[in-house]
C-alpha cells in the first residue's frame, strides 16, 4: 500500500536524494511521505525526486536540549520549491550569530544528518540538514 515508507525516504536522504510523493489527482507534492496526498487525501501518488532546494521560513536556537542532544544548535523549517515544508537542522550558521534577518528567507539546500539509535527510538535517526546556499 505504501509507495514510500519513512525507512525508504531516510535511506534515500542519506544518499543525498530527497524523495517525495506527487499526487496524480491534484498535482501537489507531499514530503515527508505519508500514505496519501497531504493536500487532497488521494492515494494515487508516485514517488519523485525533489529539487532539494528551499527557503528558510522560521528557526530557533535550542539552548536547553533533550537527553541525547547537545545544545546549542539551530532547528529550522524550510519551504521546498515544490511546496512542502521540512523540519531540520541549519548546519552552516553559528548558533550565536543566528538572527531573524540573516536566516529567514535565505535559500538553502537539503542534505541529511544521521543520529545514532537512542533510548526509545526503533533505529538510527535521520533528519534533514539545511545549508544556506548564498
Amino acid at each position: 500500500m505504501y509507495k514510500l515508507t519513512y525507512k525508504q525516504y531516510f535511506d534515500a536522504l542519506k544518499e543525498g536524494k530527497l524523495l517525495g510523493l506527487k499526487c496524480n489527482d491534484c498535482g501537489s507534492y507531499t514530503a515527508p511521505p505519508k500514505l496519501c496526498c497531504d493536500k487532497c487525501g488521494s492515494t494515487s501518488t508516485e514517488v519523485v525526486s525533489l529539487s532539494g532546494k528551499g527557503v528558510i521560513k522560521t528557526f530557533t536556537v535550542i539552548r536547553v536540549s533533550p537527553e541525547g542532544y547537545e545544545a546549542p544548535y539551530i532547528v529550522a523549517m524550510a519551504e521546498l520549491e515544490e511546496g512542502p515544508w521540512l523540519m531540520g537542522n541549519l548546519i552552516n550558521v553559528d548558533p550565536d550569530k543566528a538572527k531573524m534577518d540573516n536566516i529567514i528567507g535565505k535559500k538553502v539546500t537539503v542534505s541529511a544528518k544521521i543520529l545514532p539509535k537512542m533510548n526509545y527510538t526503533p533505529d538510527e535517526g535521520v533528519t534533514p540538514a539545511f545549508v544556506i546556499a548564498e
Binding site: Y6, P32, K57, T58, F59, T60, V61, I62, V64, S65, P66, Y69, Y73, V75, A76, M77, M87, G88, N89, M100, I104, K113, L115, T121, G125, V126, T127, P128
Partner: peptide
C-alpha cells in the same frame, strides 16, 4: 512532536513556540 520526521532535529517544545514567535514577528 513527530518522532520520525521532527524529533531527530533535536526539536523541543520551547523550540516549537520559539519558531512560532519568529514566524509571527515575520
Amino acid at each position: 512532536t513527530d518522532s520520525k520526521y521532527e524529533e531527530f532535529s533535536g526539536l523541543t517544545f520551547p523550540g516549537v513556540f520559539a519558531m512560532l514567535a519568529h514566524l509571527y514577528a515575520d
